[in-house]
């Protein structure tokens, strides 16, 4: 017997193979898709980051001593009807109890100015450059709008809308959305205010007497009392 025959004989009766071509191809296809998804996400993040950096105002003045001075992006307010990415879970899909009659575009501009005034009062050492960029979304059934503002690159977010719940139902509303020990409801100037804290984040939700619901969320830089003052500010209303 020569070596070739011996090798052929040694491999003459192979056991059934465990190689599954279909599974192999499916796995490879999944890997490729995942690779594309990761690459696409990374590319999109780089592009978005580049655009945000490019749109930062070149010569904005920073106040001395301010821990996190709110820097304002110079975006134009978008037209009404766009969907905002800043829905914080406050929206339930129900229309507000009291319909908002003001045009969303007018409302966004007015609220931007009002928020500028409120922030200037609360942060006297900081320069706020109007107009504040607003993100606007139509509420269900056309009964008003939802407006959100990002300040200081998203370190402070303020959202306003017509509330779907009454003052009496606010505590039940809180219980359904906030069951953690870090969440409490206090009264400020006769208005219920929900204060929710987590690591590095404080959120305050106030229900105004006129039915406006204001949420102010800060990721560092602002203390709880400042957020409460912003949330309960009478000027921040969707029922002027």
């Amino acid at each position: 017997m020569d070596l070739t025959q011996a090798m052929l004989a040694a491999t003459d009766n192979p056991p059934p193979t465990s190689i599954d071509i279909d599974r192999l191809m499916t796995g490879e296809r999944r890997r490729t898709h995942r690779l594309y998804a990761v690459t696409g996400t990374a590319l999109a993040a780089v592009l978005v980051g580049g655009i945000v950096v490019a749109q930062q105002p070149a010569g904005h003045v920073e106040a001395p001593g301010a821990a996190h001075p709110p820097a304002v992006a110079s975006e134009e307010p978008p037209s009404c009807g766009i969907s905002t990415q800043m829905d914080d879970g406050l929206l339930s899909g129900k229309p507000p109890l009291r319909p908002v009659t003001e045009s969303c575009f007018v409302g966004a501009g007015r609220l931007g100015d009002a928020l500028t005034t409120v922030l200037s009062d609360q942060l006297p050492d900081t320069t706020i450059t109007p107009p504040l960029p607003a993100e606007i979304a139509k509420l269900v059934a056309g009964d008003g709008y939802f407006t959100a503002f990002r300040v200081a690159g998203g370190d402070l977010e303020v959202r306003l809308r017509g509330s779907e719940t009454t003052t009496a139902g606010f505590d039940a509303w809180r219980a359904s959305r906030c069951l953690q020990a870090t969440c409490r409801v206090e009264q400020h100037d006769g208005q219920p205010v929900l204060i929710r804290t987590s690591t590095g984040t404080v959120e305050v939700v106030a229900l105004h007497a006129d039915g406006t619901m204001v949420s102010a969320l800060a990721r560092g830089g602002l203390v709880e009392q400042q957020l409460v003052s912003i949330a309960v500010a009478p000027a921040l209303t969707v029922y002027p």
């Binding site: 465990s18 192999l24 490879e28």
Partner: peptide, 12 residues
């Protein structure tokens, strides 16, 4: 089988 699978994936 492992070696063959490796080759087949690379080939694919």
């Amino acid at each position: 089988d492992d070696l063959t699978s490796t080759v087949l994936v690379k080939l694919l």
